[in-house]
Deep mutational scan, measured.
Amino acid sequence: LVRYRTISKIPQITLNFVDLKGDPFLASPTSDREIIAPKIKERTHNVTEKVTQVLSLGADVLPEYKLQAPRIHRWTILHYSPFKAVWDWLILLLVIYTAVFTPYSAAFLLKETEEGPPATECGYACQPLAVVDLIVDIMFIVDILINFRTTYVNANEEVVSHPGRIAVHYFKGWFLIDMVAAIPFDLLIFGSGSEELIGLLKTARLLRLVRVARKLDRYSEYGAAVLFLLMCTFALIAHWLACIWYAIGNMEQPHMDSRIGWLHNLGDQIGKPYNSSGLGGPSIKDKYVTALYFTFSSLTSVGFGNVSPNTNSEKIFSICVMLIGSLMYASIFGNVSAIIQRLYSGTARYHTQMLRVREFIRFHQIPNPLRQRLEEYFQHAWSYTNGIDMNAVLKGFPECLQADICLHLNRSLLQHCKPFRGATKGCLRALAMKFKTTHAPPGDTLVHAGDLLTALYFISRGSIEILRGDVVVAILGKNDIFGEPLNLYARPGKSNGDVRALTYCDLHKIHR
């Protein structure tokens, strides 16, 4: 019993810090008490220290592992850092350059016999395009090294910054494609005289377009951006097909006994025919423009016929181009109408809503002055909100995010209106959640004399007048207030005048 009563005193000691020596009952000389009392004092002292730490809000209350900052290894790049964003855009520009100039170089340097010394005699450094290609190869190699040090988000939505895990993730992902696209074939085969082989191998750079397509997928929600990307894709495919079309004609031209190829026909049409040795002929500019003209006309199913396939190889390629053109029509131009419709969806919704308003007016036989006010209010409210119901949009977000959005939407009023000066951010967040926005066209009466005042109004834009009878008592403008002081009276009061809008007004109100 003594032991039980001794232990039962522990909660009292913990909360009230009572010393055991003052209790005459606990001072009985028993061996059990002498053993338990020192333990009680020690526990009391420890609990006292913990309570003191909690009340003082000291940093040592938290466990040590929670006080440590997340460790980022040296030379690790955050995937959302500004440097990584700028670097990704730079790589994107280099990939676009590669997609345009690599097929052009591979096709127009394929057994090209233009006048001038061969590239091997001039030297590697004197070729501007080769120098640019070398810079692109170096940048792609540097990009691989950067990807080995860039964080990523795993399946659990955690940012991984450990170098080993980053390397394994990159090896399992895009490393092989990036490595093949970054191989400097110019340096590996330079001086061997195989410019045709170098041009063909350099087309491996186009593998990076797969990554670019995935990154550009984030802009699919913007109709104008999608339309622009589709047109660029169409032009890029036409450019690639033009390079292939020229390569076919250029390879067949020296081996044909009869002059029936499209390059021969082009030379005869523009007065620059090929001679018996295969030299001469149109310039590279004429060849490229004509090839691009043929691919565009074939892809769009126009086909004027002034550039036509004559050999079997050219006919087979033309059939493939027609098939590609039909697929592009289905996948690209078939979506253009939907994209344009999405661009004008706001206008369509406006006309639909206006039609419903006019049908309501016609069905209920609203008189002319009231009908005009109804239409003007709808037009003004639509121009202010673009038909978007803010309350319906915010309803799907958590309250903390709703408060931040409301604070942002009402920031101008909260910053410049005098009653809100000096208020804490928590108070402003709470008030912003209570605001209701209303609009009024010129001549609209917001409050009639004798109406119950259940709200306090803040003028965000425009001006109003307060009338008693036919006498203008006051004219209020931006950041002015009218209405009933909230919670100042037990019952809502009545208006002693009319409140009429002089201009288009936007008002925020808080109800009782």
Rank of each mutant, 00 (worst) to 15 (best):
residue 64 E to Y: 12
residue 67 L to P: 05
residue 71 R to P: 12
residue 73 H to V: 05
residue 78 L to M: 06
residue 78 L to S: 07
residue 78 L to R: 09
residue 89 W to K: 01
residue 99 A to F: 01
residue 100 V to L: 01
residue 107 A to I: 01
residue 107 A to T: 09
residue 109 L to W: 03
residue 110 L to K: 14
residue 116 G to K: 09
residue 117 P to T: 12
residue 126 C to W: 01
residue 130 A to I: 05
residue 135 I to W: 03
residue 139 M to H: 03
residue 139 M to L: 14
residue 140 F to C: 01
residue 141 I to H: 04
residue 141 I to K: 01
residue 141 I to Q: 01
residue 146 I to Y: 01
residue 155 A to M: 12
residue 161 S to E: 10
residue 162 H to R: 13
residue 164 G to A: 13
residue 166 I to W: 01
residue 169 H to D: 04
residue 175 F to E: 01
residue 176 L to V: 12
residue 177 I to W: 10
residue 177 I to L: 04
residue 178 D to M: 01
residue 179 M to I: 11
residue 179 M to W: 08
residue 181 A to C: 03
residue 182 A to M: 09
residue 193 G to V: 03
residue 193 G to Y: 13
residue 197 L to D: 03
residue 200 L to V: 04
residue 200 L to C: 12
residue 203 T to W: 04
residue 206 L to K: 01
residue 209 L to V: 09
residue 211 R to F: 03
residue 218 R to W: 05
residue 220 S to V: 09
residue 220 S to I: 09
residue 222 Y to N: 01
residue 231 M to H: 05
residue 233 T to R: 04
residue 234 F to H: 01
residue 246 Y to F: 01
residue 249 G to N: 03
residue 251 M to K: 04
residue 251 M to E: 03
residue 252 E to A: 01
residue 258 S to T: 11
residue 260 I to D: 03
residue 262 W to I: 01
residue 264 H to Q: 03
residue 265 N to S: 13
residue 269 Q to E: 01
residue 273 P to Y: 01
residue 274 Y to P: 01
residue 278 G to N: 03
residue 278 G to Q: 03
residue 281 G to S: 01
residue 283 S to D: 10
residue 287 K to A: 13
residue 288 Y to F: 01
residue 290 T to L: 01
residue 291 A to I: 01
residue 292 L to G: 01
residue 294 F to I: 01
residue 296 F to E: 01
residue 299 L to A: 01
residue 303 G to I: 01
residue 305 G to E: 01
residue 306 N to Q: 01
residue 313 S to L: 13
residue 322 M to I: 03
residue 327 L to R: 02
residue 329 Y to W: 03
residue 338 A to M: 05
residue 338 A to Q: 06
residue 340 I to C: 03
residue 343 L to F: 14
residue 357 V to A: 03
residue 366 I to R: 02
residue 368 N to A: 10
residue 373 R to H: 06
residue 379 Q to T: 07
residue 379 Q to P: 02
residue 381 A to S: 10
residue 393 V to Q: 03
residue 393 V to N: 03
residue 398 P to M: 01
residue 400 C to T: 06
residue 402 Q to M: 04
residue 404 D to P: 02
residue 408 H to L: 03
residue 413 L to Q: 01
residue 413 L to S: 01
residue 414 L to K: 01
residue 417 C to V: 11
residue 426 G to L: 02
residue 427 C to N: 01
residue 428 L to F: 02
residue 429 R to A: 05
residue 432 A to G: 06
residue 432 A to W: 01
residue 435 F to T: 06
residue 435 F to V: 07
residue 440 A to N: 09
residue 441 P to I: 10
residue 449 A to R: 09
